[in-house]
Write a protein that binds this DNA or RNA. Sequence first.
DNA 1: TTCCAAATGGACATCATGGTCCACTTTTAG
DNA 2: CTAAAAGTGGACCATGATGTCCATTTGGAA
Lengths: 211, 211
Amino acid sequence: MPEGDTVSGTTATRRTPRGLETRSRIVESAANLFYVKGVNATTLDDVRLASSTSKSQLYNHFEDKLALIHAVIDVQSKFVLAREEQRLRSVKTLSGLRRWRDALVQANSLQDGSYGCALGAMSIELSDTDEQSRRALNASFDAWQRILVETLTRLRELGVLTEDADPQRLGTGLLAALQGGYVLAQNAHNSEPMAVGLDMALDHIGSFARS
Amino acid sequence: MPEGDTVSGTTATRRTPRGLETRSRIVESAANLFYVKGVNATTLDDVRLASSTSKSQLYNHFEDKLALIHAVIDVQSKFVLAREEQRLRSVKTLSGLRRWRDALVQANSLQDGSYGCALGAMSIELSDTDEQSRRALNASFDAWQRILVETLTRLRELGVLTEDADPQRLGTGLLAALQGGYVLAQNAHNSEPMAVGLDMALDHIGSFARS
DNA sequence: TTCCAAATGGACATCATGGTCCACTTTTAG
DNA sequence: CTAAAAGTGGACCATGATGTCCATTTGGAA
């Protein structure tokens, strides 16, 4: 069994464009289903149906369901991190940070708070079951936090925040507030608690603003 | 099929002490398994084994697995709310609130952050699948938040916090920070992010302290 | 003591789901 | 053009989980 493993989670020796196209269709469909139904509640038949593929294709492209899960974690992580990176890179003021908040809250409210955070949900569902998933998701959360810390560090260097501000702690707290907001919003089917949670974190960060 | 439904989730007409004893043994075992393995990953055979009962007893006491899940939600909710009520009722100072924080963090660190919040975990796993579970868990979160709000209101009335403090918003934010902390801690297998998240919320609350 | 409902144990039926296989088609390299 | 490799479809198998049944035991009230 020669495992090329160029693309994470793939059992490939060589792949054609068409095959890669099919593969990504499968992953996209699975990602979507995992997001709205949960990983465990999604069957491979669901994935097959949603992606217009067949059983053998799933097993051609993925060792087993777990490999598919890992691929989905991979793609969701990349998606979330790219989005956050893009949104936060240019933030240079506190109101820039608030606009970041607004975008998250708005996206969440468009779906009535449902489904929560793609990474957080998978994390809770998988981290006690599959160590590899946990590691991957943990790495993504670390990266996410790093982006936040970089942003806050920049704000401090620009003099928006005072020297007292600890970007590391503030970044962790901000991410915790965000994740907790997702949990409460998902449960309440209402994005309000997420908005309140984030606002509290931002207010706290604002308390370090250079007057 | 006469459904007595005195005890939530039970298909009972009449029950003897022995039966009730068995029932609660089942629920306790299930609650524990759901907590450490997740609801979906726990089979009825696991429950049967852990509770030293047999298949027919499960179905004698519960309509189906979902009914058992509802019973577990019920008992976990009562447990968490009783604990929180008991711990927060007597809090009359900010350092009292910090002791509440310490207790949560310590309990979490004893299990290396794993498993997260019993209610939060079930919430994420079930809220997209079963509406009744979502409602029940949402009610519990509401009650939890109410306890926090009452505590903060008390602190304000006692003059510990200024009139500017908005117990409602602070309570929601505090709960969000807690839940988010659980998520990050579970994933990192480390209670540190939970401590940081809670500290940020408490610092923010502290900023409303009457000087 | 007797009787009956409740409680119990465990075998068994059923079914969904993950996973396999193989015949057939498409693509691509020589 | 052709042959081999990659991709595809869907029937099929195996497993394990949920849920059923029934014979037997237990416990308490008349």
